[in-house]
Design a protein around this nucleic acid. Structure first.
Length: 592
RNA sequence: GGCCCCGUGGCGCAACUGAAUAGCGCAUCAGAUUUCGGCUCUGAGGGUUACAGGUUUGAAUCCUGUCGGGGUCACCA
């Protein structure tokens, strides 16, 4: 029970006894530095229920609290703000209550809570992962961890786009120009090898168009009729017909890609519980459309195509099935959503981590599922995020301006190595341990940098200059953690027993308050699908700790109990940093 | 053009979903530290929260309009 809840029920009781009124909610905020107090109640919001002068109301409630609660020692009133001072005993008690709770702030999965499926990454199998995927992966993974810590079961999933004309393009190019190259023969990661052939196709295709135009063909015609494109289309037909050779090639090359992705995912520190493949799901949804037609949710046009009218909701009409009966993108998404609920009946909602260019698509998708009558539609969320832009302009894979995910991770690690070699305290480390550490720091910087900002905002990413190691950054927080560990290593006394008979320092108070807040922050972050809340919380905690560290001696304290208490606080802060960072997918080092 | 998102000190970000004098980091300037890791801490300067109205006891936050940036309006995925 944190202080806010305790006070809230006490104040409600007070209001009941003084004014005989029930109020639903009491508002609190942190007391501003310039006033005395630990927590502040905002009286203004009560004026709806209680007629009167805010100052008087605050004073009466302050008096009531002082007399009727153990925790409130005194109070002061400024305008409509009741500043409440909390007793030292309360801080000791509440800190001692949580001192030995492992994973403080994390809630166990509640039985009656429905599970959540979080989809993220969802790559194409013809291109390696790039910077955009990194933001997607970090967000999706972190949100999954946060929801899990908030007390819900989570299924992490990705849907792999493994079929279609674009896949045939890289297959065809490999067949024509590959000379039997494999990841083993070239030493390339599988996704990189296949990606190269996707580029190769595009080059050949452009050449053929130029040739055709030079021969006097119209440019539009040339684009449609370039021989290599026709061949790719033919290949797609063969694939759909189940042609043995094409399917075998498709399987072989996709495997290369999956092996490549696995390496990238592992480096990035993300994982999945379930994979869905478009080759299995692209036919889903058609029967749902037939069903919806019967129910009158959809309607058929003269040419046989099926549509939904969303003009009443301020959107357009949207096609859900082509005239030839084949599915479009959204048909598949409808089918897949329903399929997932069938596969995992304990799911009560889903989170789709997809870029904001698909905002409209998901609006439509959710609306359709609502109209089809699925009750879980209201627990569908599109975790939409802004583009990651480069200083030079937009990322385009064809023009080679993409930042490759693997390259970026290596670059971050290199930067961390350079800095650590100058400043690190790593004498005790072996070379492999050092390498692991550089990666921890480099990726910590990258992850924190991306996750601390509101997902909706665009990020301008300058690989060379953007990543700072000072200030509000991952490494700064990691550094504080490492320093705490250094203190704990040196603490050669028993600090497991609880302490309560010393003077409590304001900086210690601030830290206890901050730690107590952690469970609430997790719940808020889960509700808002916002890793940024966790990142900012951790930073605030670390700043409070550094301030504490600077103001009071810990191991150097003369008073034995003080020494123990401060060590305990340090330990708890360290634990909390570690837990919070685990929610962001960031490791913390023992030394750096 | 319709719809959606964004606009906060020079730069990068906050503000618990409407509350006190809008916080923090980088950069700049001035200090602190016999001690536990000098990648730390304390302080100063720097803001009409893009602009104009409105609602409210109270607005960066809600509403309307304008401007600027981005996205989206495919029988592509």
């Amino acid at each position: 029970m944190n202080i806010q809840n305790t006070l809230e029920s006490a104040i409600k009781k007070g209001i009941k006894s003084i004014y005989n009124v029930d109020v639903p909610k009491i508002e609190f905020q942190d007391t501003r530095k310039d006033f005395e107090g630990d927590i502040t109640m905002v009286v203004f919001s009560l004026l709806k229920y209680i007629k009167g002068n805010p100052f008087e109301i605050a004073t009466k409630l302050g008096e009531y609290l002082q007399e009727n609660t153990d925790q409130v020692t005194h109070y002061n009133v400024v305008k409509g703000f009741l500043n409440i001072v909390i007793s030292n005993d309360y801080y000791f008690n509440s800190f001692n209550d949580i001192l030995n709770i492992k994973n403080f702030g994390f809630k166990n999965v509640a039985k009656n809570e429905k599970a959540v499926m979080v989809e993220y990454s969802s790559p194409n199998t013809n291109k390696p992962l790039h910077l955009g995927h990194i933001r997607n992966n970090l967000l999706g993974y972190s949100v999954s961890e946060i929801i899990a810590a908030s007390g819900k079961k989570v299924y992490k999933t990705q849907i792999i786009n493994d079929r279609g004309i674009h896949i045939c393009k890289s297959m065809l190019a490999w067949e024509k120009f590959g000379n039997g190259e494999t990841p083993e023969s070239t030493g390339l990661k599988g996704d990189k090898l296949v990606g190269n052939y996707y580029v190769k196709f595009d080059q050949e295709y452009k050449k053929e168009i130029e040739q055709l135009v030079a021969d006097g063909k119209d440019i539009g015609e040339a684009k449609k009729n370039a021989p290599i494109l026709l061949e790719a289309k033919e290949m797609l037909l063969k694939w759909e017909a189940g042609d043995k050779q094409v399917v075998a090639l498709w399987k072989k090359m996709n495997h290369w890609v999956y092996n490549g992705f696995d390496i990238s995912y592992k480096d990035l520190g993300v994982d999945f519980d379930i994979n869905y493949y478009e080759s299995n799901t692209y036919l889903l949804g058609k029967d749902v459309v037939a069903d919806g037609l019967k129910k009158g949710v959809f309607y058929k046009k003269e040419d046989g195509s099926v549509w939904i009218d969303l003009t009443d909701e301020g959107l357009d009409e949207k096609i859900v099935l082509r005239a030839d009966g084949t599915a479009v993108y959204i048909t598949q998404d409808i089918g897949t959503a329903i399929q997932r609920i069938k596969d995992y009946p304990d799911i009560g909602g889903m989170v789709y981590t997809v870029g904001n260019e698909q905002d409209y698509h998901f609006k439509v998708l959710f609306l359709i599922l609502k109209k089809l009558g699925f009750s879980w539609f209201e627990n569908l969320h599109h975790l939409s995020y802004g583009m990651v832009d480069l200083p030079e302009g937009k990322m385009k894979s064809r023009e080679g301006t993409v930042v490759d995910a693997d390259d970026l991770m290596v670059e971050m690690t290199n930067t961390a190595r350079e800095i650590s070699q100058e400043l690190g305290k790593l004498e005790a480390y072996t070379t492999p341990e050092k390498e692991k550490l550089y990666k921890t720091i480099g990726l910590g910087a990258l992850k924190y940098y991306i996750l601390k900002v509101d997902p909706k905002k665009r990020i301008l990413f300058n690989p060379k200059e953007s990543i700072d190691f000072n200030g509000n950054t991952g490494p700064f927080i990691q550094y504080t953690y490492a320093r705490i560990q250094s203190i704990l290593r040196k603490a050669d006394f028993d600090y497991t027993n609880t302490i309560s008979d010393i003077e409590i320092h304001p900086k210690e108070k601030a830290l206890i308050k901050q730690i107590q807040n952690f469970p609430l922050v997790i719940q808020q972050a889960a509700q808002n699908l916002s890793p940024a809340l966790i990142a900012n919380y951790t930073y605030d905690l670390v700043k409070d700790y550094n301030s504490f560290y600077q103001s009071v001696p810990i191991l150097g304290s003369e008073n034995k109990n003080e020494k123990i208490f401060r060590t305990q606080i340090s330990k708890k802060v360290g634990d909390t940093i570690k837990l919070a960072f685990s929610l962001l997918g960031i490791d913390v080092p023992e030394r750096m």
